[in-house]
């Protein structure tokens, strides 16, 4: 290990550190991905029930999908999917050197948050049977 010759500045006042919006969107990409992974069995199970051929499986699907708790989880997953989807597109664009500049990347992070939350609201109201 080479010796550290210069005292590096430290700024670890956690209550004063502000994660920029792009950073928040970035950590939410990870959180949403983890959530989707954890709930994968539920989604596969719902797919199985939705495609069942017996009347019992149709009834079972309705019972599960109508459960308020399941619906709330699904609402969370809708957000997670949308955020992961939008943020994924943003990251792919950045990989192609589009929107790398600080100002543009801040703007695109804002757009990701706005679009995913708006679409979650639209899909969420549909999911909860408002319209």
């Amino acid at each position: 290990m080479p010796e550290v010759t210069r005292q590096r500045p430290k700024f670890l006042a956690l209550n004063e550190i502000r994660l920029p919006l792009a950073g928040i969107a970035s950590i939410l990409h990870r959180v949403s991905g983890a959530g989707l992974f954890l709930m994968l069995p539920l989604l596969v199970w719902l797919l199985q029930l939705s495609l069942g051929s017996t009347p019992e499986s149709v009834t079972a699907f309705k019972a599960v999908a109508d459960n308020l708790f399941v619906r709330l989880i699904l609402l969370g997953l809708v957000w997670a999917f949308l955020h992961h989807f939008c943020m994924g597109i943003r990251l792919l664009l950045i990989d192609m050197h589009i929107g790398v500049e600080k100002q543009q990347s801040h703007k695109s992070a804002k757009a990701v948050m706005a679009v995913s939350l708006t679409l979650t609201l639209i899909f969420g109201l549909k999911l909860l049977g408002v319209y």
């Binding site: 990870r30 991905g33 983890a34 989707l36 992974f37 994968l40």
Partner: peptide, 9 residues
């Protein structure tokens, strides 16, 4: 995709 992502976590 999930394997790479979760492994990174």
């Amino acid at each position: 995709h999930a394997w790479v992502g979760i492994r990174d976590i």
